[in-house]
């Protein structure tokens, strides 16, 4: 049996999803650049900040790109 899903999906909805992807990408880029600046300018003791920034960067990917809420929601 194939895993199928139901429900109509419209074009404006798709446009909104695509924009969301761009916003998430923008946030990820900003985090990555801040991370780089911290890593290259702070000589010592930067690792806690880098660890926090990495965790902050991973969350939007898991939440919006990997759709983790699907695990406890019936259908997205």
């Amino acid at each position: 049996m194939r895993a199928q899903r139901s429900g109509p999906k419209s074009k404006p909805e798709l446009g909104a999803k695509m924009r969301l992807g761009l916003v998430v990408f923008g946030v990820l880029m900003a985090i990555e650049i801040i991370e780089y600046l911290v890593g290259t300018s702070v000589r010592a003791g930067a690792w806690p900040f880098l660890a926090i920034l990495a965790a902050i960067g991973a969350w939007p990917i898991v939440r919006y790109f990997m759709h983790i809420p699907q695990l406890w929601q019936r259908e997205e």
């Binding site: 780089y36 890593g39 010592a44 930067a46 660890a51 991973a58 898991v62 990997m66 759709h67």
Partner: peptide, 22 residues
Amino acid sequence: VKYWHFVDVAWVFIYPTLYLVS
């Protein structure tokens, strides 16, 4: 695609660990 994002998430942690932490 989910697997692909996971590969990305792994890199988000590998990058500072190897290239930035000092």
